[in-house]
Computed example of a mutant assay.
Amino acid sequence: MSPRRRSYDQYCSAARALDVVGDRWTLLIVRELLAGPRRYTDLHADLPGVSTDVLASRLKDMERDGLATRRRLPPPAAAYVYELTARGRELLPVLQALGGWGAGEMDERRPTDALRAHWFALPLLSALEGEGVVEVRLEEGDFHDGVFHLYAGATDGPAYGEGPAPREPDARLTLDAGTCAAVGRGETSLPDAVRAGRIEVTGEGVLAKALREAAA
């Protein structure tokens, strides 16, 4: 039997939610799993600062609480991956709201701050209107891989993914991390950034055309 988790012991929905996701690292693990199934080693690589023991413990807690599941990939991969349940995916708007609230803290990047390109996925998803696949390329020299893709308007499945889009995207955006942060802080909208030349939009899909029209 799994040990009883720590609880605030309050009959309050906010307290009950924090009983489940309030531990350090849990919501950041959710952020990573919103990209779809991830191997333990990939999660550890994209959560700099977390110990292997804490990551393993949090994943077990998330399985116990119905937020995530673990399954074995078929051969030739034969590896285990973790993925969100439907209840876990319901945390997407929670993370987007939390990111919006915390955007005001995104001033200058500190020398100790780790950075991954796909960490800008959720703010950009919040700023996009419409449905479709959007490929994003960040023009920054310190990214291991500055390309990721978004599933705008998706109600199930992954919210985003690392690397190029798996199919021809509805739009391609090229921008820098500073512009991403500015969009997340609400200092500029996507159309305004396109109009100002801070975002290059290519593609002939509905989303690309809508962005160019809005910026005209």
Rank of each mutant, 00 (worst) to 15 (best):
E90H: 03
R6Y: 12
V54E: 14
G104T: 08
E139Q: 12
L18T: 02
A14G: 06
L95S: 03
V20G: 00
M62T: 01
P169A: 00
P37M: 00
R16M: 11
A127S: 12
V21K: 02
R16H: 12
V81A: 10
G163Y: 08
Y8M: 11
V30M: 05
V81L: 06
L122Y: 06
T174A: 11
R64W: 14
E139F: 02
R4T: 13
P164W: 06
A117C: 05
E162H: 07
A68S: 13
L98E: 11
G153R: 02
A79F: 14
R195Q: 14
G205P: 13
D65Q: 11
P158D: 01
R198Y: 11
L207P: 07
R58G: 08
F120V: 02
P75I: 00
H44A: 15
L175T: 07
D113F: 04
L92W: 02
D9R: 09
D113M: 05
F143Q: 13
L43A: 06
T85F: 10
D113Q: 15
G141Y: 07
V81F: 08
S7A: 12
K209A: 11
G184Q: 06
A214K: 07
A154R: 09
L207H: 03
I29F: 05
L73Y: 00
R64L: 14
D170V: 05
G163F: 06
A215H: 04
L173F: 10
G197M: 03
P3L: 15
A171E: 02
E129C: 05
G157F: 02
A103R: 08
R71G: 14
E105W: 15
E83N: 07
S13I: 13
G88W: 00
T85L: 08
F120H: 10
K60W: 12
Y82S: 11
R172I: 03
E83Y: 00
A79H: 15
T179M: 04
L122N: 04
A154L: 04
A181P: 03
L92T: 03
G102C: 10
D9G: 01
A215S: 13
T41C: 04
E83T: 12
G205Q: 07
E204W: 05
F148C: 03
R167W: 09
E168Q: 15
D170R: 03
L207R: 01
V21Q: 03
H144M: 10
L190Y: 01
E168C: 08
L98F: 13
S7K: 06
A152S: 08
V183F: 02
E139C: 04
R70H: 12
R167N: 08
R110C: 14
G186H: 01
A193T: 09
S126R: 15
Y80P: 05
D107C: 10
A121P: 13
L43H: 04
L91I: 05
L55S: 12
R185D: 08
P191S: 01
E32A: 12
R16D: 04
A210W: 00
V206G: 09
E135Q: 15
